[in-house]
């Protein structure tokens, strides 16, 4: 086991900071109870279709823009 704890100023300050911030910190009782009794929030049933829907909408938009432009006209003229 390797541990090198030097007592220089910075290290002392870091320790002081942590002791001021973390010492005596306990999980609030209501938070503990909440985590023990609540189950993980479920994603909606439709959530899995969101990427498919987004892709379909993007494709449809592209086709509409393409159809309304002169590109199709030019392509079919050949």
């Amino acid at each position: 086991m390797t541990t090198e704890h030097n007592d220089d100023e910075l290290e002392q300050l870091v320790r002081t900071h942590y002791h001021a911030t973390v010492d005596g910190v306990r999980v609030p009782e209501d938070l503990l109870r909440q985590v023990l009794t609540t189950t993980e929030p479920q994603r909606g049933r439709t959530a899995r279709w969101a990427p498919v829907l987004a892709f379909a909408l993007a494709g449809a938009s592209f086709l509409i823009i393409l159809g309304s432009s002169r590109v199709v006209e030019v392509l079919f003229s050949f």
């Binding site: 911030t21 973390v22 910190v25 306990r26 999980v27 938070l31 503990l32 909440q34 985590v35």
Partner: peptide
């Protein structure tokens, strides 16, 4: 391990509101 994890999260997140969320 709840208290140990919570203390770490308070130090890591810098505030208790975020620590509560991440703890959950």
């Amino acid at each position: 391990c709840a208290h140990e994890i919570y203390a770490y999260l308070v130090a890591r997140m810098g505030n208790r509101f975020d620590a509560d969320d991440v703890f959950q």
